[in-house]
Amino acid sequence: MLGFAARRMLLLPVTILGLTLLIFLFMSFLSPYELLSTYVSDPRQLQGDAAQTLIKQYGLDQPFYVKYVKWIDEVIHGKFGWSVTLNEPVSKAIMQRFPATLELAIYSIIPIILGGIWLGVTSAVHHNKFIDQMLRVFALLGYSIPSFVLGLVILFIFYGVLGWLPPGRLGVNFSMIYDSSSFYHYTGLVTIDALLNGRFWMFLDALKHLVAPVMTLSFLSWAGLLRITRSSMLEALGQDYVRTARAKGLSERVVINKHARKNALIPATTVAGLMFIGILGGVVITETIFNYPGIGSLMAQASEQLDYATVLGITLIYGLVTVIGNLAVDISYALIDPRVRLR
């Protein structure tokens, strides 16, 4: 298993290089004037020969391989370029935004896994009965409703009408405390840092801000997990060892929980792992609707402005997360299912 992990890690730089090269290649299709739009947002900035000066100044007319070599050189020296979107070094921008997405991913994945598996198992156990039919409709809805619609509905009901779940990451007052020098940022995860700073109300406030995006992501993810768990559970319930367990006189609860569900969890684990990776890569629409300051909303802002330095930086992170995440999923697969051997 160690050899497998090492080989996969060795492939990491190649994957990342390939990814970034591809993005630079795509960027090369853009003309200098198109790239200029990153720096010019208004015709007022085009007085005189400003356009030509800016093109030269920022090297927008250089061939893509020259830009790529320069960028690689910067990365080697620990820099990732300048984020025009946030007006700070890309590394700093990512460092600021990534913990928010990580926090969202951590809090989301718990209800996603628990809820998705429970729903899937329930659906399979009540195969073709009313509950199963209802859950299938539920899954269909989860698949069909676009995230921006669901997000807006949740925002409207739970914030607009009920006033419970505000957007953002913290309320105004707690945000002031969070930004003050007296608040120590241990991890960048607001809930954890709030507890470590002894601010329980801030912890609850941060949690309150997480509920709506977590609800959105959970609902959308449950559909996939429900279907996977349901079908693998149905398959497991039809296996000989389940029949044997029943024949031994074990209660239905024990048969389902101890025998069938364990095996049915294997494919669900893979899917849940991939979902976690997906959220870590940044959930663009959900973060934008809930004004949640994560890497997804940063990606949206950067793409809109053709801020390729930031896009590349985030791509690097996404590449890293994907490769490492996939590796973790593969390893966990082998750990859960003794039949799987990693080579």
């Binding site: 925002l155 607009g160 006033g163 957007p167 934008t288």
Partner: peptide, 12 residues
């Protein structure tokens, strides 16, 4: 960036 979010923030 979202108008709906701005509006809800105002109403709340």
């Amino acid at each position: 960036s979202e108008f709906t979010t701005r509006k809800l923030n105002l109403t709340r």
